[in-house]
Write a protein that binds this DNA or RNA. Structure first.
Length: 581
DNA sequence: GCCGTTTTCGGCCCGACTGTTTTCAGTCG
């Protein structure tokens, strides 16, 4: 049973308990545990095999009761507690919770009064006007539920969260639109986009303006808006014709700091802040910090002031997931996270020797223009058929050409010849050691047979890590957002091997990959494993995807020391040279 | 159900918006 499956179980329990009307804090505890399991950088099963229930209790949000339930689930695959619960109320009621504007109270009402247990039954009842007679229900509520069901079905087809790759550019357009409106003093994307999560639920846009009315009016009536989901003086939300949703908040400039903090979240991070504020006799809301005694407001123009007033270091948005950052900020010990300006080397790139779109020279010149000091050309090796990868002979020719190019470019950039070495389906590598030994850097990667059984696909990657010539494992899990799942790897084994053999794990910056993902970056950091952030550029423009990788690294609390691309070129070259057996 | 440099029991954030209401409940973030 995977973390995802465990999380789904506890999430379902939370839904059913909420519909049943259980006290909210118990429900929140199950939800917190579900989220914590999802965010755990390793498998709960491995934790459990190592240390049993006591080890499980070490997981944040998991106490004795939930640890015992995990134990039962991992032992038997069943959970007596859930079985009893579904004997009381139908388990299918949990499927209704994702319907927008439909919550536990109404689900309970419909079940009690009309015996509605499924989405289809609910839809039918709404269509036939059966809901409007119930207490607190009217025609509008009924229509809202139908719209919610339609929206849910749509999102099921397209995926309920939008990949950062799509959300980011669209958000930039919306920000530009808002920035251009009269009276607007500042604009910022908040929410999970500002935290740079790999997928985004909806866009959260924050505006500083003294008069909100005109901004709200312009926002909700702009071209591209399919329907207005809500509109008030401080908050409005819309659905666009492209299916995305956004909400915009408008606050006066003098309250912008608290508003930005609130809109950025995450919810759990903000709750921690609000609790901390209460300890200091302050109530924190999106409008202000308020002294609970005197009810006097303290306004914060900037977010920095909010954190400062609470006695905290300012927490970078990427860290705001309630994963221990508030405690560190309290003691002033937040790590110095990697920044885009720290990156001086680009170590996984392609040219027209394989499937890159341009020559090595064009790539080098584009890299120089972006301030890159070390550029590795790592074309695919030959067995990856579809891209016409390089053979040993090609590498000789490529080396000659690269040497000439290096001479030409002089000290403006240091060029390295490498390869993106194919890890074949049978676990062997495309080149023998004598060929690999001639290269400056080797990035080994999986591209084929990603669906092999766990043991087999893990062993392939381990074999590559053990090879003394392999320096970096490229996009380790092979996932693509949103449609390709990662290979079923034993990540504990991969991390242990990378640590033992001092092999760097890549954080592929392409927003379709972001592989390693944030929680694995965090685990790599904890284990002292080196990271390599690369754009995997197949075209000069791809160098500009770097910020996605850096943001993901920051989400995993990566420091510049841990990222080999941040090292001084001399240090990097020494590291690469002393490797290779 | 979880958690603890003021607590192992008694806490556990705060507000906006909508729809159905005559003052509030439900949902969302």
């Amino acid at each position: 049973m995977t973390n995802t499956e465990l999380a789904a179980t506890f999430s379902k329990i939370a839904d059913l308990l909420q519909i049943k009307g259980e006290v909210i804090y118990k429900i929140l505890a199950y939800r917190k545990a579900a989220e914590s399991l999802t965010d755990l950088g390793r498998e709960a099963r491995a934790v459990w095999e190592e240390g049993g229930i006591p080890a499980l209790i070490e997981i944040p949000g998991v106490g004795k009761a939930i640890a015992e339930k995990i134990d039962e689930l991992l032992t038997t695959g069943e959970l007596e507690f859930l079985n009893k619960l579904t004997a009381e109320i139908p388990g299918t009621l949990a499927d209704l919770m994702p319907v927008p504007d439909l919550g536990p109270k109404k689900i309970k009402l419909f079940y009690d009064e009309l015996d509605i247990r499924t989405l289809d039954q609910l839809e039918e009842a709404a269509q036939n006007g059966k809901l409007r007679g119930l207490p607190g229900m009217g025609e509008k509520s009924e229509a809202k539920i139908l719209a919610g069901i339609a929206s849910l079905k749509r999102r099921k087809e397209t995926g309920d969260r939008i990949p950062l790759e799509r959300a980011w550019p669209f958000a930039q357009e919306q920000l530009a639109f808002l920035r251009g409106l009269p009276g607007v003093e500042a604009v910022e994307a908040a929410g999970s986009l500002r935290r740079m999560r790999e997928t985004v639920g909806d866009l959260d846009l924050l505006v500083a303006a003294s008069d909100s009315g005109p901004v709200m009016e312009a926002f909700t009536t702009q071209p591209g808006v399919a329907r207005v989901l809500g509109q008030g003086p401080t908050k409005s939300s819309v659905e666009y014709t492209n299916g995305m949703r956004a909400q915009v908040w408008v606050y006066p400039p003098e309250r912008y700091g608290t508003a930005l903090q609130y809109a950025t979240g995450s919810k759990d991070h903000s709750v921690k802040l609000r609790e901390l504020a209460l300890d200091q006799g302050l109530s924190l809301s999106e409008h202000a910090l308020t002294d609970t005694e005197t009810e006097k407001e303290i306004l914060c123009t900037t977010e920095q002031e909010v954190y400062e007033k609470l006695g905290l270091q300012w927490v970078p948005p990427e860290m705001r997931e309630d994963r221990g950052e508030v405690a560190l900020a309290k003691t002033g010990k937040l790590p110095r996270l990697v920044e885009i300006g720290d990156i001086v080397s680009s170590l996984h790139n392609h040219s027209d020797y394989s499937d890159g779109k341009t020559t090595m020279r064009e790539m080098a010149e584009a890299a120089i223009a972006r301030g890159i000091k070390v550029l590795a050309i790592t074309d695919h090796s030959y067995s990856l058929g579809i891209v016409q990868g390089v053979t040993a002979e090609d590498l000789l020719k490529q080396r000659e050409e690269l040497d000439a190019l290096q001479k030409d470019l002089g000290s403006r950039i240091r060029l390295l010849l490498g390869v993106e070495l194919e890890i074949r389906a049978d676990g062997t590598l495309d080149f023998e050691d004598d060929v690999l030994a001639t290269l400056d850097i080797v990035v080994a990667a999986l591209h084929v047979s990603l669906r092999q059984p766990r043991e087999q696909v893990t062993e392939r990657l381990l074999n590559a890590i053990r090879n003394p010539h392999v320096d970096v494992i490229g996009h380790p899990t092979g996932r693509q957002i949103p449609d390709r799942d990662p290979a079923d790897l034993d990540m504990d084994a991969i991390f242990a091997a990378a640590q033992e053999h001092d092999v760097a794990l890549e954080l592929n910056a392409n927003p379709r990959r972001l592989d390693l993902k944030d929680i694995y970056v965090r685990r790599a950091m904890e284990m002292g494993i080196k990271l390599s952030i690369n754009t995997d550029a197949h075209h000069p423009d791809h160098f500009d995807l770097l910020h996605f990788g850096v943001a993901t690294a920051r989400r995993g609390w990566a420091t510049p020391e841990a990222v080999i691309n941040c090292w001084k070129p001399e240090k990097l070259l020494v590291w690469l040279e002393t490797r290779g057996g």
